[in-house]
Simulated assay, not measured.
Amino acid sequence: MTFPAPLTGVVPPVCTPLTPEREVDVPSLLRLVDHLVEGGVHALFVLGSSSEAAYLTDRQRALVVASVVAHVGGQLPVLAGTIDMTTPRVLDHVAAVTAAGADAVVVTAPFYARTHPAEIARHYRLVAAASPVPVVAYDIPVSVHTALPAELVLELAADGTLAALKDSSGDLAAFREVVTGVRDDPRITGFSVLTGSELIVDSALALGADGAVPGLANVDPHGYVRLDRLCRSGDRERARLEQERLCALFGIVRAGDPARMGAGSAALGAFKAALHLRGIIDCPATAEPQVPLSPREVERVGEHLATAGLL
């Protein structure tokens, strides 16, 4: 199943604001959605990595999807992550998010148990057979410990199993292989290839990507929409300058001290600290057991925002 129109442009993986008690802060979530829509984004992706989906209970996941779908009211497509370890668990999530109104589901390879490429293909075909909406493959080997081979993605695109790919592998050569394979295979129509990198959006679009899914777009959606527009208009110099400004802003993820926290805590903490400093969410809390940023680290995030013209 494919999208009614190809999925293109900026598709932020929406952060999930939490209360100090680590419940979903729905009013803050809806303010964040308004901030993204006002910024001109082209679709929304809830329950991804930047959404802290791995930390949310099934009840919290359902609340996020239902709240965002109802608030958006069809203005933009809403993609929902159905990320879990095995096919039966993913199928349960697919049923839940599609019942809540999601327009597409985003699915990683199975994880925890090691899987063969043939088993990954079977996983996606079983999910697609059960899903009433398009299936987007999410290649994030750093989290699931399995990369999606380009030839497998192209095979599943050609037979209609997959409607799109979000590539967070960091492997630009493999990404290029998918882009050129989609372009050159007459069997593949309406398939979208999106980069998950904040730092190479201009390069990915130059290669022929359809769009980007950058976590930093939560903080600066206007910047990524501007970058997308400049790339598509062929204004390479201004696109380069905008990309470099966003690369500098991405320095917020290094505000956290790596001696006391993981990269995930630092990045998600920085995104939420930035949203809190900008007055978009009420609380910068991240889900347990992630380590919060210190006051001085939050100050460093603010310094990056000020340099980027966002404070």
Rank of each mutant, 00 (worst) to 15 (best):
P292R: 05
A163D: 00
D139K: 06
S169T: 08
A255M: 06
A212Q: 02
A53E: 05
P186L: 14
A109I: 12
E155A: 13
L207D: 13
V10W: 00
G251I: 07
V219H: 03
T108F: 04
K272V: 06
V219R: 02
G181R: 11
Q75L: 15
L76A: 03
A267G: 04
D139E: 11
L7F: 09
R254C: 12
E177G: 07
D184G: 02
L18F: 12
H71M: 11
V107W: 01
L275Y: 07
V193T: 13
L311K: 06
P134T: 08
V153G: 00
H35M: 11
G234E: 05
L32T: 03
A147H: 08
S50A: 15
P27M: 09
A306V: 11
A95Q: 06
V219W: 09
D92W: 08
A259H: 09
T307W: 12
A285W: 07
G170K: 04
A255L: 04
S169H: 04
L172V: 14
Q290R: 12
E242K: 10
P88D: 07
E151Q: 10
D34L: 07
L205V: 15
T146N: 03
C247T: 15
T161I: 06
R278A: 10
R232K: 15
R22T: 05
V144Q: 03
A273G: 06
L56V: 13
A102D: 03
G181N: 07
P292N: 13
A164T: 01
L227D: 01
P214E: 08
A70N: 15
V14R: 04
P6L: 02
P141H: 09
F175Y: 09
L216R: 03
T286C: 08
T98V: 13
T189M: 04
A173C: 09
A164G: 02
V37D: 00
P117D: 01
A287Y: 06
R59N: 07
E303N: 06
R240F: 13
L56M: 10
E237Y: 09
Y138C: 05
Q290Y: 13
G160P: 00
V78D: 01
A263Q: 13
A80T: 08
E52Q: 08
F250Y: 15
P214C: 08
A259K: 12
C247I: 15
V72G: 01
R296M: 11
A248R: 14
G234S: 10
R122G: 04
R125A: 02
G223F: 02
L227Y: 02
A66F: 02
T195H: 01
D159E: 11
A270I: 05
P149A: 14
I252M: 11
D84K: 03
A308C: 01
A109E: 05
A273H: 07
